[in-house]
Simulated assay, not measured.
Amino acid sequence: MAMDAGEIERMIKEALPDAAVEIRDLAGDGDHYAATVTSASFRGKSRVQQHQLVYAALGGRMGGVLHALALTTVAPQD
């Protein structure tokens, strides 16, 4: 069962309310997405820590319902 892009965005925004989220379906199959997530929550965190925040927001769906997510995280500049 594939995961809807809207559901991915909703889950990320639920965990990171200030996040700006852009989702692209890479293969048109609902299994392979690219996401760009911008959030002040990422400030001062390593890239790995930023990605861990997003993966935690997805509640363990990575590798299961959500097969692949190419993730770009950005901390906004002031």
Rank of each mutant, 00 (worst) to 15 (best):
H32R: 13
A2W: 12
H51E: 15
T38E: 14
A68R: 10
R61E: 10
E22Y: 00
V21L: 01
E9T: 13
A40N: 14
A27G: 05
S46V: 06
A35H: 03
H51C: 11
V74R: 14
K45F: 12
R24A: 12
A2K: 14
L69E: 05
T73R: 05
G64P: 01
A56R: 14
A19V: 02
F42N: 01
R47M: 10
Q77L: 11
V65W: 11
V54Y: 02
L26C: 05
F42T: 03
Q52G: 03
M62Q: 04
Y33I: 04
E22D: 13
A5L: 05
E22C: 01
E7H: 10
D29L: 01
Y55L: 08
R24D: 06
D29E: 09
G28C: 03
H67R: 14
I12A: 10
A75F: 10
A27L: 10
Q52Y: 02
A56F: 06
T36V: 13
L53C: 06
Q77Y: 11
D25P: 02
D31K: 12
Q50M: 06
S41T: 14
Q50I: 00
I8W: 01
G60R: 04
H67A: 05
R47E: 09
E22L: 08
A5M: 04
M11C: 09
T36F: 00
Q77S: 14
A57K: 01
S39P: 11
S46T: 15
V54L: 02
Y55C: 06
T72R: 15
T73L: 04
L58G: 02
V65N: 07
D4T: 07
G30R: 05
Q50E: 09
S46D: 08
M1Y: 11
Y33D: 05
R61S: 07
E14M: 12
M11E: 11
